[in-house]
């Protein structure tokens, strides 16, 4: 019995090891997993986008959904808003992240404590953070309106999330609040990786603080800035929870970005087919971003080659 098993093992192992099938077998678990959580839903989305799937069943309707989307008068506005929202949010995250990292990199007593103190927005579950912000933006009880009224800037309660413009910028502020700590920490790590000798050499040569920042710090951390900017753009483009919790895309669509719009169409209005078409547009944009990201990253690594 034992010897039989051993024989079996040897033949089987011999067969498997001698073929490429061995390599394939090894990646099967991961591949299966990826197929279930990525591959199949994606294929399903593509299939759905060619149907009029809804609560009452589905039927193949060819390119109708795409035509409808192309002719939609609202959709270009949504795309434009998404990009504007993303642009403002990412820019602010980058600028604040750089300033934050510079401050945290300063040689201060107790800087470790400061470093911990920037983390909460990132660590607190996003929903809880956003509910906190709902209170901040509340017109009657919120701290923001309260402070502004005390300062005499507002002469009465102001619901920040009730007006188109203020709601739009309020969601950006919250998104920046959530996204900045991570950018800060990444930039800080990059700054700490810059050799102190470079700064000392520049100091000896008479370079001012600003000059050293501009000609040493920035180029040295450029690869990190670029990757963070592009990754942050992708995440911000896809940011759903913050807007949904704060405004659900309102008022009157003022904060409806592509991802919110997709959700509203597919889940809230039960138009699964048409929603899938919109989801595909998101996939398309993100794919383009990713390609740009990879391309630029390659370039940057070439240009700012660090050793």
């Amino acid at each position: 019995m034992n010897s039989n098993k051993a024989d079996y093992n040897t033949t089987w192992q011999k067969f498997v090891r001698s073929h490429a099938i061995y390599a394939w077998l090894l990646i099967v678990p991961a591949a299966l997993f990826l197929f279930i959580i990525v591959g199949w839903p994606l294929a399903e989305t593509v299939r759905l986008s060619f149907t009029n799937a809804g609560l009452g069943g589905e039927k193949y309707i060819g390119w109708d959904n795409f035509e409808k989307l192309y002719n939609s008068r609202k959709y270009p506005g949504i795309v434009g808003r998404t990009f504007y929202w993303m642009f403002l949010s990412v820019s602010l995250k980058m600028i604040l992240g750089t300033i934050g990292a510079l401050l945290l990199n300063a040689k201060l007593k107790g800087r470790a404590a400061f470093r911990v103190m920037v983390m909460p927005p990132w660590i607190v579950p996003m929903a809880i953070g956003c509910i906190g912000w709902l209170w901040v933006y509340n017109g009657h009880f919120g701290i923001l309106a309260g402070v502004l009224m005390h300062l005499g800037i507002l002469d009465g309660p102001f619901e920040f999330l009730a007006y188109k413009t203020s709601a739009f910028y309020s969601t950006i502020v919250t998104d920046v609040w959530v996204g900045t700590p991570m950018v800060t920490i990444f930039f800080l790590a990059a700054m700490q990786g810059v050799s102190q000798d470079l700064y000392e050499a520049a100091y000896v040569d008479g370079a001012s603080r600003w000059y050293r920042f501009r000609r040493i710090t920035i180029p040295q951390i450029m690869p990190v800035i670029v990757s963070m900017a592009l990754l942050s753009a992708i995440w911000t483009f896809n940011s759903f929870e913050i807007i949904w919790i704060l405004t659900e895309g309102g008022p009157r669509g003022a904060t409806t970005t592509m991802i919110i719009d997709t959700y509203k169409m597919a889940i809230a209005n039960y138009k699964f087919g048409y929603g899938a078409t919109r989801a595909l547009m998101v996939v398309l944009f993100l794919t383009v971003f990713s390609l740009i990201y990879l391309f630029i990253l390659g370039k940057v690594h070439q240009r700012f080659k660090v050793k």
């Binding site: 050799s195 000798d197 470079l198 000392e200 050499a201 000896v204 040569d205 000609r215 040493i216 180029p219 040295q220 450029m222 240009r303 700012f304 080659k305 660090v306 050793k307």
Partner: peptide, 14 residues
């Protein structure tokens, strides 16, 4: 004064 550092302290991106 001018100084030459042990690590050379050359700017890698320049």
């Amino acid at each position: 004064i001018s100084m030459v550092f042990q690590s050379y302290a050359l700017y890698p991106h320049l």
